[in-house]
């Protein structure tokens, strides 16, 4: 087991007077895929949002590679840049081609894309069997293809912490396992910490660790 790439300590979050996360502690070791399993409304997506800097918790500490993700209630952009989301298939940017959905991560990070970046993007698309469709728009892909494109987009960032939001949703068993295999391989081969939020138990055998959340508490 590698060092922890991300640490969540005593995370609490509420909406108004209602607390939905009740002091969660979760370590994400480098080189491991952790599956976070739970029913709808259990707080798993809220926890994922907090882990990536999209939602400031009411209380608690998030550390990404030993740097605090939230400082004085504000997101530490440097730490946040070490995380990347695998968003659901519907969250690809519709006006960008599949290739540009990968390269846009450089643009948003203020980097100029190079030929080497394009080659790496092509390699990733080849790995998810989408190289031939690199210049198509998301609307021209099937649901499974869009999900694989979303995975490739997150992996393109080389972020040490990958946060996946229901990456197997709406995929059949075979496609779902393929996506989970890809994420697991990324964790094992690249040493990234991967947290997968899911309620799909069909590919849990590919996870290094399974954590269950219910009513805002880890079991």
């Amino acid at each position: 087991m590698g060092a922890n790439a991300a640490v969540l300590h005593d995370i609490r979050h509420g909406y108004g007077d209602v607390e939905v996360l009740h002091g969660i502690d979760l370590d994400l070791p480098a080189g491991q895929l952790v599956a976070l399993l739970g029913p709808s409304g259990s707080g798993k997506t809220t926890l994922l949002a907090i882990a990536g800097g999209l939602l400031t918790p009411t209380a608690g500490v998030v550390q990404i590679k030993e740097s605090p993700l939230y400082v004085n209630g504000k997101v530490n952009r440097k730490a946040a840049s070490d995380t990347a989301y695998v968003l659901q298939a519907s969250a690809l940017i519709g006006f960008l081609t599949v290739m540009d959905n990968l390269l846009v991560r450089d643009i948003t990070a203020g980097r100029r894309t190079t030929d080497a970046d394009r080659e790496r993007a092509e390699e990733l698309l080849e790995a998810v069997d989408l190289k031939a469709k690199a210049h198509r728009y998301p609307g021209q892909l099937s649901g499974g293809e869009r999900q694989r494109a979303a995975v490739a987009a997150a992996l393109y960032t080389r972020a040490p912490v990958i946060l996946a939001d229901e990456p197997t949703a709406a995929l059949d068993r075979e496609r779902g396992r393929a996506v989970m295999s890809l994420l697991a391989a990324h964790a094992h081969e690249r040493g990234a910490a991967v947290l997968v939020v899911t309620h799909d138990e069909r590919a849990l055998d590919l996870a290094d660790r399974v954590v269950r959340i219910e009513d805002g508490k880890l079991n």
Partner: peptide
């Protein structure tokens, strides 16, 4: 109409300035 893509761009680190 493009609130969704804008949210994705923000989630991927795009600054408001961009």
């Amino acid at each position: 109409q493009k609130e969704g893509p804008l949210a994705v761009l923000r989630a991927t680190g795009a600054s408001r300035r961009l």
